[in-house]
């Protein structure tokens, strides 16, 4: 459940697209990305509150992942600016963005399968002098830091219940465990903001609860979390604030309880489903939303 402080901080924020936040960590202006003739992202203004869990939702093709890629430097915008902790990230390559403290995970998990779990974890750590070609040749120069990193990695593995798999190849883990590993690995660099791209996709329901717990724990440790998600259940349960995208634009913002009732959201999400009555509040229960989501996805795949 959302913590009080985050909820309180966001209580007075107007429920409208581009609303100003009391303590924004990310501020983006006029971010546009075009592919050929199509505009995938066209965000006029958005702010992300520090220390809160913000969900980025929207139907498929709304530009969520592309916006994510732009913020984290994995894609270059056609135009636009944005800042992270007051400094512009525009034009910074992905690696520099990560080193500034904004670390992401991927929709399709990128565990490095032919490396062991512990090696995956060690790779996540920053400032290892042994990652320099010349220092690498002199082990005494990096052994001490390696020990620290290993300790930190082992603690995180225990926390994410992966310590039994320490020396297995990451490729041998289940889908959910890989998600956990990816998240744990991202934490190795002690980031200030964690960006999760569909953390629930492909996760066994048995692991869902623990994954949710981990995400909340991140916020409780003082990190800011932004995640893209299709799972409405998860959005409702853990997010403090929800941003809704459709056709590349931000169409609504607000706390999870109210944003779902925004007519713009209903339009955006279910435009193709006018045969269903969406005015009914019950319709927006998790189950129905999930089912609709599945339908939308199925259609998307057919296309």
């Amino acid at each position: 459940m959302p913590t009080d402080s985050a909820v309180r901080a966001l209580a007075d924020v107007p429920r409208e697209p581009g609303a100003a936040k009391p303590d924004p960590i990310v501020v983006a202006d006029d971010v546009v990305r075009r592919f050929g003739g199509m505009t995938a992202v066209d965000v006029q203004h958005v702010e992300i509150q520090r220390g809160a869990i913000t969900a980025l939702i929207g139907p498929n093709g709304a530009g969520k992942t592309t916006f994510f890629n732009l913020l984290t430097g994995f894609d270059k915008p056609s135009s636009g600016t944005w800042t992270f902790e007051g400094r512009s990230l525009h034009g910074l390559p992905a690696a520099r963005v990560a080193r500034k403290g904004m670390v992401r995970t991927f929709q399709l998990t990128k565990a490095l399968s032919r490396m062991t779990v512990i090696e995956n974890m060690r790779l996540g750590a920053g400032s290892q002098p042994g990652e320099n070609l010349f220092t690498a040749l002199v082990p005494p120069l990096w052994r001490a830091r390696e020990r620290e990193i290993t300790e930190q990695a082992e603690e995180l593995l225990v926390r994410f219940k992966l310590d039994h798999h320490r020396d297995s190849f990451a490729g041998s883990l289940s889908g959910g465990q890989r998600k956990l590993l990816e998240m744990a690995r991202a934490l190795m660099s002690k980031p200030t903001m964690v960006m999760l791209d569909e953390p629930m996709a492909g996760v066994n329901p048995a692991l869902t609860q623990s994954l949710l717990g981990h995400i909340q724990a991140l916020r409780d440790d003082g990190m800011t979390v932004l995640f893209v998600e299709h799972d409405m259940h998860m959005v409702r349960h853990i997010s403090d604030w929800v941003i809704v995208m459709a056709e590349g634009r931000i169409v609504a913002e607000g706390p999870p309880e109210t944003v779902m009732q925004d007519p713009a959201v209903v339009d955006a999400y279910l435009g193709a489903h006018h045969d269903t009555d969406l005015g009914d509040d019950a319709l927006l229960s998790d189950d129905v939303a999930e089912q609709l989501e599945a339908e939308v996805q199925a259609e998307e795949e057919k296309r």
Binding site: T72, F74, P93, A94, A95, R96, A98, R99, V103, R104, T105, F106, K110, A111, L112, S113, R114, M115, L123, G124, G126, E131, E182, R185, A186, M188, S189
Partner: peptide, 11 residues
């Protein structure tokens, strides 16, 4: 293994 993953880790 996956260069995007490594990029996302700040390398």
């Amino acid at each position: 293994e996956d260069e995007d993953a490594v990029r996302s880790l700040g390398k």
